[in-house]
Write a protein that binds this DNA or RNA. Sequence first.
DNA 1: CTTGACCCTGACGCACGGGTCAGGGGTTAG
DNA 2: CTAACCCCTGACCCGTGCGTCAGGGTCAAG
Lengths: 130, 130
Amino acid sequence: MRIGDAAAAAGTTPRALRFYEERGLLPPPARSASGQREYGPAEVARVRAIRQLLAVGLTVDDLVSRVHRLDLLSEDPPRRCTDAPGPETFAPVIEARLTALDTEIARLTALRERLARHAATGGANVPGEV
Amino acid sequence: MRIGDAAAAAGTTPRALRFYEERGLLPPPARSASGQREYGPAEVARVRAIRQLLAVGLTVDDLVSRVHRLDLLSEDPPRRCTDAPGPETFAPVIEARLTALDTEIARLTALRERLARHAATGGANVPGEV
DNA sequence: CTTGACCCTGACGCACGGGTCAGGGGTTAG
DNA sequence: CTAACCCCTGACCCGTGCGTCAGGGTCAAG
């Protein structure tokens, strides 16, 4: 499978695949004699796993730090009783991400409050920063 | 007053003042013979107004679109019964900003939910997008 | 006069996940 | 053989509000 089909199979674009590879999320794939990337079902599954984790709010760097666990997620039967703790390995980054999200949500909510008050009062004074 | 003092008086930096000027939020100030910017109390007040609006969540572009109303806000006695509707003039952008904030908050909240579920279930499947 | 603090313009950096050329080569059906 | 489509690498673009050099003039005090 060449990059276009692999990307389509994983629900993304060739550019994204090259990007993941460049960032170290995908191992350098096999190349055809003329230098074109060749992908198999395993890499497509891995890309799916990457996309799920990204969609859920993790960043590329989060994944890079745990890249060695990505394979565990790409396998169809989630046999997570082998020896590795399975997806829980992502717990630390997920925790951190949750905290960051909470902080950001709180910040935006406070901002929203202030903006609403600002609109209501006519915008004279806002407490101020430092 | 030169730029450093003006910036300090407004609670910001020289770079920010040049930036506002470049973006059209501040009119080009008077210059000394040697080309240095000269500011008076009026511009400092205007910068304060700009900073308040930014702090409240509006963007520079929001302000640019209503730049002609900034002067009204910079005056000390909020005489908003002259002829212009006063700060309410910012209502449209504030509305838009509130909507944008709500959307963003909702997005992050949903993300947080998904991430939390992902962590709880062990990260097997996330519904997916298109 | 010299020093140190301030000012000038112009231009790149940042965080994020790719999008979008540009210029050149591979591949395959008709 | 050729059109039409795919792939390659390298490099710039987006949005936000400035921060931070770089290289060079200006100003006030000692």
